[in-house]
C-alpha cells in the first residue's frame, strides 16, 4: 500500500511529466491558451495513460522482455524481443486511442463532445509514449503499480497544463516586452515553474540529498573508530603484564 502512495505522489510532483522530463510539451504549449480546453485535453491524457500504460506493461512482461516468452515453453526462454518495444508500444497507443474514440462516441456522446476533438491529438503526444517507455525503463513491478503510474503521471500533466493555462489567461493583461509575447514568456514561466517543482524533490526522502550524503560521510568517518576486538586487548594486557613481570624480575 505504501509503495502505491509513494509512486502516486512521486509521479505527480517529483517526476512531473512536464517539469521534470519535458514530455508532451508540444500540446502543452499549443493547447494552453484557455483553461477550458486545457482541462479537456488534460482529462483525455489521464484517461489514455490509464489505459495504455497497464496494457503496454502486459506486452512488455509477456512478450518483449528478455526471456518473456518462456510461458510458451522452455525452448523460447532465450528470446529477447525488446528491440520491438517502440513499434509495439506506439501501435498499441494508436489503436487504443482510436478504439477509445469509437467507444466513447457510441456510449457517451456528451463526454465525446468534450474530449473527442483532443483524442486524435493524443496519439502523437510524447507524454503517452513517454509514460510507457518510462514504465519499461524503471521496471515497474506489478500491473497495479503500472496502472497507478499511468494515472498519476496523467494527473501530473493535467496539473501542469491547468496551471500554465490559468497563467496565460492572466498574462494577456500584462505588459510583456513585444519579442517575448506568446511563446517566449510561456517558455520562461514554465522554466520558473519547473524550478519551483524541483523543491518537491525532498518530499519523500524527508530532507535534501545533501543532508543524506553528509550523514553518510559522518558514518564513514566513525566506522574505523570501532573498538579493537577483545582478543587484541587481552593480548596487549598479557604483553604489558609480561613487561611488568620482567621489569620486576630485573629489579629484584
Amino acid at each position: 500500500m505504501l509503495e502505491h502512495v509513494e509512486l502516486f505522489f512521486k509521479s505527480i510532483f517529483i517526476d512531473n511529466m512536464v517539469f521534470a522530463v519535458f514530455l508532451g510539451m508540444c500540446s502543452y504549449l499549443a493547447v494552453s491558451k484557455k483553461v477550458a480546453t486545457a482541462v479537456g485535453l488534460g482529462a483525455a491524457v489521464i484517461f489514455v495513460l490509464a489505459v495504455t500504460v497497464p496494457l503496454n506493461w502486459l506486452l512488455d512482461k509477456y512478450l518483449l522482455q528478455d526471456g518473456a516468452l518462456v510461458w510458451l515453453g522452455p525452448e523460447y526462454a532465450d528470446y529477447n524481443l525488446s528491440f520491438l518495444s517502440f513499434i509495439l508500444f506506439i501501435a498499441t497507443i494508436a489503436t487504443m486511442v482510436q478504439l477509445v474514440e469509437i467507444v466513447v462516441e457510441k456510449f457517451s456522446p456528451s463526454l465525446y463532445n468534450s474530449l473527442g476533438i483532443f483524442l486524435p491529438l493524443i496519439a502523437v503526444n510524447c507524454a503517452i509514449l513517454g509514460g510507457s517507455l518510462f514504465m519499461q525503463a524503471r521496471e515497474i513491478e506489478t500491473l497495479g503499480l503500472a496502472f497507478n503510474y499511468g494515472v498519476s503521471s496523467g494527473i501530473g500533466w493535467f496539473l501542469a497544463i491547468l496551471a500554465i493555462a490559468a497563467i496565460r489567461e492572466k498574462i494577456r493583461y500584462s505588459n510583456v516586452p513585444a519579442p517575448l509575447r506568446g511563446l517566449g514568456i510561456t517558455f520562461i514561466i514554465t522554466g520558473l515553474m519547473g524550478i519551483g517543482f524541483q523543491s518537491f524533490g525532498g518530499m519523500l526522502t524527508g530532507g535534501d540529498d545533501a543532508a543524506e550524503e553528509a550523514n553518510e560521510q559522518v558514518n564513514q568517518i566513525v566506522e574505523p573508530k570501532v573498538i579493537a576486538p577483545k582478543e587484541d586487548i587481552v593480548e596487549k594486557n598479557k604483553e604489558i603484564d609480561e613487561e611488568v613481570i620482567s621489569y620486576n624480575d630485573v629489579n629484584k
Binding site: 517539469f19 521534470a20 522530463v21 519535458f22 494577456r172 510583456v176 516586452p177 513585444a178 519579442p179 517575448l180 509575447r181 506568446g182 511563446l183 517566449g184 514568456i185 517558455f187 520562461i188 514554465t190 522554466g191 520558473l192 515553474m193 519547473g194 524550478i195 524541483q198
Partner: peptide
C-alpha cells in the same frame, strides 16, 4: 538542472524576435 533549458530557449526566442520584429506574436 532541466528547467534551465526552458529559460535558455526562451532567451533564444527573445533574441530572434527582437532581431526580426515580423515574427512577434499578438498577445
Amino acid at each position: 538542472i532541466p528547467p534551465a533549458a526552458l529559460i535558455v530557449v526562451g532567451i533564444i526566442i527573445w533574441v530572434q524576435r527582437s532581431r526580426n520584429p515580423a515574427l512577434v506574436e499578438e498577445n
